Deep mutational scan, measured.
Amino acid sequence: NMTTNERRVIVPADPTLWSTDHVRQWLEWAVKEYGLPDVNILLFQNIDGKELCKMTKDDFQRLTPSYNADILLSHLHYLRE
């Protein structure tokens, strides 16, 4: 019986294949993992993996503070390698 913190996010390895639900799961995981403040996951609700991967730093900064944008982008970049 796992707690929420221990729950593994199971999403496709390639972020471009993510559904909007996968994006939400990834964001929820990242918020907990990195202790990100002020991430409004609802702002990302219509973004799927293909859109997420096209987003620039400016795009991320429209949805979340700069600090969060940096961490989310670097993790996304890591996943795409």
Results as ranks from 00 to 15, higher is better:
Asn1Ser: 08
Asn1Thr: 12
Asn1Phe: 12
Asn1Asp: 08
Met2His: 09
Met2Trp: 05
Thr3Arg: 09
Thr3Leu: 08
Thr3Asp: 09
Thr3Pro: 06
Thr3Cys: 08
Thr3Trp: 08
Thr4Gln: 07
Asn5Arg: 10
Asn5Trp: 11
Asn5Tyr: 07
Glu6Met: 13
Glu6Ile: 12
Arg7Ala: 11
Arg7Asp: 13
Arg7Phe: 09
Arg8Thr: 11
Arg8Gln: 11
Val9Asp: 15
Val9Pro: 15
Ile10Pro: 15
Ile10Phe: 09
Ile10Asp: 15
Ile10Tyr: 11
Val11Arg: 15
Pro12Leu: 02
Pro12Cys: 02
Pro12Thr: 03
Ala13Pro: 15
Asp14Ser: 03
Asp14Val: 01
Thr16Phe: 11
Thr16Cys: 13
Thr16Ile: 13
Leu17His: 13
Leu17Met: 13
Leu17Pro: 00
Leu17Thr: 15
Trp18Arg: 01
Trp18Cys: 00
Trp18Pro: 00
Trp18Gly: 00
Ser19Arg: 06
Ser19Tyr: 01
Thr20Cys: 14
Thr20Val: 10
Asp21Ala: 12
Asp21Trp: 06
Asp21Thr: 09
Asp21His: 08
His22Trp: 02
His22Asn: 14
His22Lys: 04
His22Ser: 03
His22Tyr: 01
Val23Ile: 02
Val23Cys: 03
Arg24Gln: 14
Arg24Phe: 05
Arg24Trp: 02
Arg24Ala: 10
Gln25Thr: 11
Gln25Cys: 11
Gln25Trp: 07
Gln25Phe: 08
Trp26Thr: 00
Trp26Lys: 01
Leu27Ala: 03
Leu27Gln: 01
Leu27Thr: 02
Leu27Ser: 00
Glu28His: 12
Glu28Ser: 07
Trp29Asp: 15
Trp29Phe: 07
Trp29Leu: 05
Trp29His: 14
Trp29Pro: 00
Ala30Val: 08
Ala30Trp: 03
Ala30Phe: 03
Ala30Asn: 05
Ala30Tyr: 02
Ala30Cys: 07
Val31Asp: 02
Val31Gln: 08
Lys32Phe: 05
Glu33Met: 07
Glu33Pro: 00
Glu33Lys: 13
Glu33Val: 05
Glu33Ser: 10
Glu33Gly: 03
Glu33Trp: 05
Tyr34Ser: 04
Tyr34Phe: 11
Tyr34Val: 03
Gly35Lys: 13
Gly35Pro: 03
Gly35Glu: 12
Gly35Thr: 14
Gly35Arg: 10
Gly35Trp: 04
Gly35Ala: 13
Leu36Asn: 01
Pro37Gln: 10
Pro37Trp: 07
Pro37Arg: 12
Asp38Val: 01
Asp38Lys: 08
Asp38Glu: 08
Asp38Met: 03
Val39Glu: 08
Val39Asn: 06
Val39Pro: 04
Val39Asp: 04
Val39Trp: 03
Val39Met: 09
Asn40Lys: 08
Asn40Phe: 03
Ile41Cys: 10
Ile41Thr: 10
Ile41Asp: 06
Ile41Gly: 08
Ile41Asn: 06
Leu42Phe: 06
Leu42Asn: 14
Leu42Ile: 07
Leu43Trp: 08
Leu43Ser: 13
Leu43His: 13
Phe44Val: 02
Phe44Ala: 05
Gln45Gly: 10
Asn46Ile: 03
Asn46Leu: 04
Asn46His: 09
Asp48Met: 03
Asp48Arg: 05
Gly49Ser: 01
Gly49Val: 00
Gly49Leu: 01
Lys50Met: 12
Lys50Pro: 11
Lys50Glu: 13
Lys50Ile: 07
Glu51Asp: 08
Glu51Trp: 04
Leu52Val: 03
Leu52Lys: 01
Leu52Phe: 03
Leu52Pro: 00
Leu52Ala: 01
Leu52Thr: 00
Cys53Arg: 03
Cys53Gln: 04
Cys53Ala: 06
Cys53Phe: 04
Cys53Asp: 03
Cys53His: 02
Lys54Tyr: 07
Lys54His: 08
Lys54Pro: 00
Met55Ile: 03
Met55Gln: 00
Met55Cys: 04
Met55Trp: 08
Thr56His: 07
Thr56Gln: 07
Lys57Val: 07
Lys57His: 09
Lys57Phe: 06
Lys57Trp: 07
Lys57Asn: 04
Lys57Cys: 04
Asp58Pro: 15
Asp58Ile: 14
Asp58Asn: 05
Asp58Glu: 14
Asp58Ser: 07
Asp59Ser: 06
Asp59Leu: 01
Asp59Cys: 13
Asp59His: 04
Asp59Phe: 02
Phe60Pro: 00
Gln61Asp: 10
Arg62Asp: 12
Arg62Tyr: 06
Arg62Gln: 14
Arg62Trp: 04
Leu63His: 05
Thr64Leu: 10
Thr64Tyr: 07
Thr64Ala: 10
Thr64Cys: 08
Thr64Glu: 05
Thr64Gln: 06
Pro65Arg: 11
Pro65Lys: 07
Pro65Val: 11
Ser66Cys: 11
Ser66Trp: 04
Ser66Ala: 14
Ser66Arg: 09
Tyr67Lys: 08
Asn68Cys: 05
Asn68Ala: 12
Asn68Pro: 12
Asn68Met: 06
Ala69Thr: 05
Ala69Gln: 02
Ala69Arg: 01
Ala69Phe: 04
Asp70Thr: 06
Asp70Cys: 02
Asp70Trp: 03
Asp70Lys: 08
Asp70Val: 05
Asp70Glu: 14
Ile71Arg: 15
Ile71Gly: 05
Ile71Pro: 14
Leu72Tyr: 01
Leu72Gly: 00
Leu73Tyr: 09
Leu73Val: 10
Ser74Cys: 07
His75Thr: 02
His75Met: 00
His75Val: 02
His75Phe: 02
His75Gly: 06
Leu76Arg: 00
Leu76Thr: 01
Leu76Glu: 01
Leu76Gln: 00
His77Asp: 07
His77Lys: 13
Tyr78Glu: 15
Leu79Glu: 09
Leu79His: 08
Leu79Trp: 12
Leu79Pro: 05
Leu79Lys: 11
Arg80Ile: 13
Arg80Asn: 15
Glu81Val: 06
Glu81Ser: 14
